[in-house]
Design a protein around this nucleic acid. Sequence first.
DNA 1: GGTTTCATCCGATTTCAATTCGGTGGCGCG
DNA 2: CGCGCCACCGAATTGAAATCGGATGAAACC
Lengths: 170, 170
Amino acid sequence: MKPENRLLDRIDHEILAALQNNARQSNKELAASIGLAPSSCLERVKRLVHDGIIRGFHADVDPKALGITLEALVFVRIVRHQRELMEALWAHLAAQPEVRDLYDVAGSHDLVVHVAVRDVEHLRRLVAEQIAGRAELGQLETSLIFQHRRSNQLPDYGHEHAAPARGRHG
Amino acid sequence: MKPENRLLDRIDHEILAALQNNARQSNKELAASIGLAPSSCLERVKRLVHDGIIRGFHADVDPKALGITLEALVFVRIVRHQRELMEALWAHLAAQPEVRDLYDVAGSHDLVVHVAVRDVEHLRRLVAEQIAGRAELGQLETSLIFQHRRSNQLPDYGHEHAAPARGRHG
DNA sequence: GGTTTCATCCGATTTCAATTCGGTGGCGCG
DNA sequence: CGCGCCACCGAATTGAAATCGGATGAAACC
């Protein structure tokens, strides 16, 4: 079933919150923390994954450990808005290993690119060779990131119209 | 040991790559995929977590399933750069559940805030009540996000100066 | 050059968790 | 009011995680 069609109940929301916080807790722990039998809990988790509500499980690695000493936001403005050029640029940037986040936005910039690089020279080369020098681009602005905080918990606006609990003990 | 002091070898890098891609594979699978005995593999993973190289494991949840229909980047410019005001603002924004990413950057903006909201009205209220109207702020610019792609794989610049394998079978 | 030291790995064993499956009760529907 | 369905449970089974002693080289040290 498609995510937009699925209706999640309170228990599903609790599972999602718990797994966003710690994806590696055992199913037994998870079940206990939300007051469900392990078998039932496992069923729900598998369903959430199967239905695409949970898109994956990822380790959060310290960038410093990978030799990343510098991150930056690159603000890109497009000169000629042609769909194919835009899509090609998007695909090109998404394929760069240095690109962590890629935003297509409305407003005074068109693209915002969050990159993680080895050092300043690496950043210079990346911007010069992979971003600038593309015909479709206008102004470029590169901003070094001093500090970055990422939340691992998505806000949850689904409680109001949540599905009622079903089955036994409802 | 601190991450900056730790020296990771080829196997560590393989483990990190594999767990960034799928944090929930069994240790047995992981070990097999990199050609290591399960016991040895588990030791390494536990060490990576203990040393802070791996900072956590998180489920990636579809925002639509949580009632999020809209995301935006809010660009913030600070008028008076005082450290305490800046830190208070940072903490305030970081505490908002709607804030997914918070960037402190150099350049023509000072803060870039990635927010996830229920709808346009929610965005308006969030910006008006939690961001604007703070004395320390200057210009504000809010850009709707049309599309957002996030890589779950951090680039790895650690191979060149990797630690040599130690112990048996080196 | 021989020896010591040490970190890593392995594999058998034990412990515990994941998975399966038949049974049960509430809820909606006819 | 009775029927069928759905989610849940809990016991049994399968399989993985965690532990530990021992073996192996590599590097360091005399």
